[in-house]
Design a binder for these strands. Sequence first.
RNA 1: GGGGAGAUACCGAAGCGGUCAAACGGGGCAGACUGUAAAUCUGUUGGCUACGCCUACGUAGGUUCGAAUCCUGCUCUCCCCA
Length: 430
Amino acid sequence: MNFIDELRWRGMLHNSTPGVEELLENEKPVAAYLGCDPTAPSLTIGNLASLMMLIHFQKAGHKPIALVGGATGMIGDPSGKSAERELKSVEVLHYNVAQQKKILQKLLDFDHPVNGAELVNNHDWFKDMPVLDFLRDIGKNLTVNYMMAKDSVKNRLETGLSFTEFSYQLIQGYDFVHLNKHKNCKIQFGGSDQWGNMTAGTELIRKMSAEGEETEAHAVTCPLITKADGTKFGKTESGAVWLSPELTSPYKFYQFWVNSSDEDVKRYIRIFTLLDKETIEALEVEHNEAPHRRVLQKQLAQEITTMLHGEEAYDIAIQASQILFGKGTKQTLRNLSEDDFLDIFRGVPQIEVSHTAVEEGINVVDLLAEATQLFSSKGEIRRGIKGNGISINKEKVSDSDMTITSDDLIANKYILLQKGKKSYGLAVVS
RNA sequence: GGGGAGAUACCGAAGCGGUCAAACGGGGCAGACUGUAAAUCUGUUGGCUACGCCUACGUAGGUUCGAAUCCUGCUCUCCCCA
């Protein structure tokens, strides 16, 4: 199956310029690139959808190039934005670029002898470009009329758009020109919202090629990932789902996917895993027979967690899930080794309690009030206790006068705090 | 420039001198049910050293024993006419 067909059955193809399929059939490997803007110190699962295109591309025997937007990040992409963006400082951008590189390195194979992935930063070719060169060599090739017709610009004419953001498409467009010339890169990938910027690139390549020179440049986009209930994909109550383990723990990451709805999971497993068609269809049959077992969700979560965070992290996520949602009791908690315990609750908000306080006994409400990320007031804690919604070490607290003593410590050091079913906190005795 | 209406908690919206920490709906949180889902049902939704106290009905003053409620100035929003 060729690459484009692969994208098609997975529901990952939104739009493509004519002739891509022929190109990929006649040539191998072909180089393609995908750009990410360093607006945050990590990438989110929103970026992951287009990243998956790059992964499939490499799997199909082609050469993926990941571009981090050290330069474009300094400008700000107006696509999909209703207002002018705050500019990030250069230091922040550098940091973000470095963090994003780490993730890209996990997902792509950089060592393959034939089609190893490559990582580039557009800051490298923009940092020394004189403004006059930019205006004469690049800007001359596109008309303002053409640029204004892009949705990203049109939508902002009412509210205002700075020249800086207006010129974004030229910057991104030139990236493609540069990669086309120096890396023989012929395709650009992106989300459907990037279509305008990407075609600006193919347009520039055509205009900037020398007379008689053969150039080929294509754009391929994937659809925006949606959720069946209409809410925004990739967001949880606690914010975006990040790809780096420091920002979203592997456990939370795993949980995010396990919690996909039945309707969504069939689309997600096609997009976010490398499983082939037969395997997925077989899983679907199984899922439809016993939807409560959620084989699809579990498989999806396993594949994607392993791919990003590795086997080990996945195992811990599984263990954590069993303890937190299965029949975890005080006893199972006590049976855990300290290392496992810590691993499972890594990323959970922690509070410190003094050793003497625990020795003398501390009131539950006072203890929980320290966990400000879990509870906003003592009143909330008292209400929670009354409503049977608060547990310590997996045991319900029924009385707000209860006292916590050193008998309640796990591994002599920890107390597990819990609000409802899903919110945890950890008190550490120091 | 002239005239009118309004500003209440996370949002929408009642209240129009004491019984108002403020009806009702949405949202949030929790409980039951369940599949760690959806739907449904129930409770809860300012803070605290808690039968009491403090802070809150745009903002600053005033009237009153007592103000979200009455009066005045200010700020902002909306509507109508020029």
